[in-house]
Nucleic acid binder design. Sequence first.
RNA 1: GGUCGCGUAGCGCAGCUGGUUAGCGCACCGCAUUCACAUUGCGGGGGUCACUGGUUCGAAUCCAGUCGCGACCACCA
Length: 726
Amino acid sequence: MQKNYDHKLYEEEIIKKWDESGAFKAKVGVAKKPYTIVLPPPNASGKMHTGNVLMIAIEDILIRWHRMKGETALWIPGTDHAGTETQITFERELKKQGKSRFNFNREDFYKEVWTFVQGNKLLVEAQIRRMGASVDWSRNKFTLDEDVVSLVCKTFEKLNNDGLVYRGDYMVNYCPNCGTTYADIEIDHIERTDPLYYIKYGPFVLATVRPETKFGDTAVAVNPADSRYKEWIGKEIEVEGLSGKFKLKVIGDEFVDPEFGTGVVKVTPAHDPNDYEMGKRHGLATIKVIGLNGKLTEVAGKYAGLSVFTARKQVVEDLMAKGLIEKVDEKYSHTVSVCKAGHDVEPTILPNWFIKIDSLRKPALDAVKEGKVKIYPKWRSLTYVRWMENMHDWAISRQNIWGIRIPAWYNSKANQDLMVSFINSQGAVVKGQISNLLKDYPLVDIKSGLQTLIAPAGANYEISIKEPGEDYLQETDTFDTWFSSGQWPLATLGYPDSEDFKYFYPTSVLETGWEILSKWVSRMMMLGIYLTGTPPFKDVYLHGIVRALDGRKMSKSLENIINPEEYIKEFGVDALRMGLVAGTANGKDFAFPRDRVIGYKKFANKLWNVARFIEPITPKPNSVDNEDDQKILDELNEVIKKVNLYLEKFRFAEVAELIYEFIWHRFADIYIERVKNRKEEAAGTLRHVLMNCLKLFHPFMPFVTEAIWQEIFPEQGMLVSQRWPE
RNA sequence: GGUCGCGUAGCGCAGCUGGUUAGCGCACCGCAUUCACAUUGCGGGGGUCACUGGUUCGAAUCCAGUCGCGACCACCA
């Protein structure tokens, strides 16, 4: 053995040995207890980040521990296609080449992204392997694998048969820049200062930040208890507008805060979530002012075709000129919705696909309330309960190409008003209503060049995995990625009738970052119970988010992103994994613990040198234990007991500290120092304690422990397959 | 506005269902060193556990309130 442990000499080689041994391949059917974890699939197009490292470290600890305990431990790896994110990344690449997604038909674009993702996917998989993750690669899955797609489509079909799918106009967060809708949880709310305009509206004055939407106003609302305006409720007012006079109804609605502005609100049901709700309550018409391209529609008269911001400027100028603006509050601070790319999101009405969640939510909520599924740390389960209680129907369609296409079909003859855009045989983009397009083009051409299709809310459709007939066009929307990843535990285990599914389902632990508790965990719960009657996991362990060294969130703009690769190179995988695991104790967010990473690199070396001390000692035959020997053995047994206890409670940091303290300070500093003059006599105890320490610490620092094991106990085979000390 | 969490040594934190002199890492100070390890060893300083009140034989730990900080959810045009 060399004087110091050099991780670079061992890590790659040990991974190869583990691979060759097949130790991570789980076999079904033996009379053993199954222990299953499904790896939350990292983005196939991204790079491994520190959060992924922590996740892998924790799950690897659990899996290696249970494997050594003699259970059939299965850890299923996989990668996620990450719909919107990947598509945006790819489109950025396209832009550099002077292209956009509008240069492609749907099918070709999909193929392009597929190719783009494949390379990255391999890199991510290599990184998972590099982390020492003891996953079963023979069961590796990608969220767009054929069997996954098939399951997801079948589930959708089943939901539809159960009457849980509907299509409807719905207020969505539409980003004209990205050309897609976002779920509520995908958008951010940021503080911003915008001018608040006080506009004369017939007999009233009302405040708004969005004067350009006034063309979509279908009422004016006041609080029913507001004595100033009470008498107006139910009456019509005449308003002097930019294109002449028009009439509006006055409604009374509790939503209106008499204290804010003038206590009068213009109601624009097509472009504001609250107004939309009010519109529903009062049966108001919805008039679309902003189109899907982010520009004003024909109803805006001369402002049609202008972008929202230009239109706003124009409208304000013209209102000023007409004397219709009473005053402007330039310092009005409010929150606006933006997408992940930072664009303003337009609340817009679009036909979308929905799932009724009432019947799905109840059992998913009860499972946690009744303790059938336990969430750690416990206080996080409150977040889950609150979220589930407030959940709305789930919009599962996305106007993305990169994803699982919704298996719904529109008959082109029965639905004359489908809006279609496609690339014709000359390579030109053609848009229009299907009934008109069919006069000039055969349906086959439209089908092969299809880009997007928007069917009105009332369109006739059929849900079918296969094309129902020649006259049909398939929906161009794809599923929300959380709809497909919500079935991940089932998809990876080959639901419904594989041997894996029967043996390994439900999985043991779902381990992930708390930030996707509502996005992902809740959906897996709902869909898992819906399909199988059983929650997809018994325990949920939520780790904290790894922040930057300064304790702030990692972000590109702050330039504080920590690249795990650098740490792996300098300190080794073991040290990085261990540092992260020991740095988080109770599921709270925490700053990247650089000090600990360094500390555990030193620890790896300490352990190495303990072994190096013990290795050359030849045991004396018939040696008897003395007091020191007995003491260290007792202490070891105490540690073993505690380690098991802590691991059962997911208290990884405590285990780390405990074993670290035991090996370094009790075993090395005290015991070894004391036996130096009777080494040969103590050899048996020395080897015994070392052996058990290696086992105990193997799940945490798999490389250095395996490396030492191979040096000292090669006759025993590999450490990965050793029996856990009980 | 709603919800959750945090405030313990200079810094970063642990202390789970209350129990002897409150711990860990880093930093700091002194000493040692041909020994398995300088990626080392031995020793040391440093805290009225945010504040106020309560429960208790006993509170950093439980309860109430106050102040400060953070996160998530919602959104008043």
